[in-house]
Design a protein around this nucleic acid. Structure first.
Lengths: 130, 130
DNA sequence: CTGAATCCTAAAGGATACTG
DNA sequence: CAGTATCCTTTAGGATTCAG
């Protein structure tokens, strides 16, 4: 209902965070996804689409319930991820990216691409990425 | 001299970090620049080119000496930033991006672009990015 | 000017167990 | 299935001071 209000709050927080300088767009983004698991979670949601809790946990791999839960809360507050209850009994939930979250695609994919290139570099030492 | 060795070490660390899964390129990148100030530091070096310590500190703005120093050490270990002493007396140092660090440009710029778009949204509430 | 050394606090992350 | 609740450890970050 009052999702406009919540969003405004989130944006206010950002402005505070970026104060001290003629605010920095890089910092803005870093603040949102600069947690250990955030980029991976967003990536998995981009790749696999809307997912249940445990499904997501499997895909992320290595994350504990608590941390995943915390991370999803945080991503929710930041309007990047949406949580939808799709069944009461048994409880079934579906996490998906909001439009806002979806818009991070270029960032996440840039990260993915960089990772791809630079790990390859170690396997394939003679590749000349230069 | 043995910079090849150091680089191999850094990459080994990454591989360890990414173990537990058929390694994840997103995580790889997140591990490297997923610290509070790392993206900003790299960004400033991209924008302003090679910089002295205090110059960099000014450009980053809001960071303490200790944290900047720690961050630069870390970025150095990861072969993203190079440190060069250009004068002994008085001590003058120049930090610059390695090729490796320079290659992060698309990632950092993707972050910057996202930040630009999504803060504008708050100033200019009626803009329809949709 | 360029940091290193200390000390401290807050926050993030993780292990484990349990619940509706 | 989808979490919460605890508890604990680690680490990041920050303030301040000192030094080459």
């Amino acid at each position: 209902m009052s999702d406009r209000t919540e969003q405004t709050d989130a944006i206010d927080k950002l402005e505070v965070w970026c104060a001290g300088e003629e605010w920095c767009p890089v910092t803005t983004t870093a603040t949102l996804i600069g947690k250990k698991w955030h980029p991976v979670i967003v990536h998995r949601l981009l790749e696999h689409g809307p997912s249940g809790f445990n499904e997501l946990k499997e895909n992320v791999d290595g994350i504990s319930s608590k941390v995943l839960s915390d991370s999803l809360d945080d991503l929710g507050e930041k309007q990047l991820v949406d949580r939808e209850i799709i069944s009461e009994k048994p409880v079934r939930v579906r996490y998906s990216l909001t439009d806002h979250g979806e818009s991070l695609k270029p960032v996440i994919y840039a990260m993915r691409d960089w990772g791809l290139e630079h790990i390859t570099e170690s396997d394939d030492r003679n590749s000349s990425i230069v």
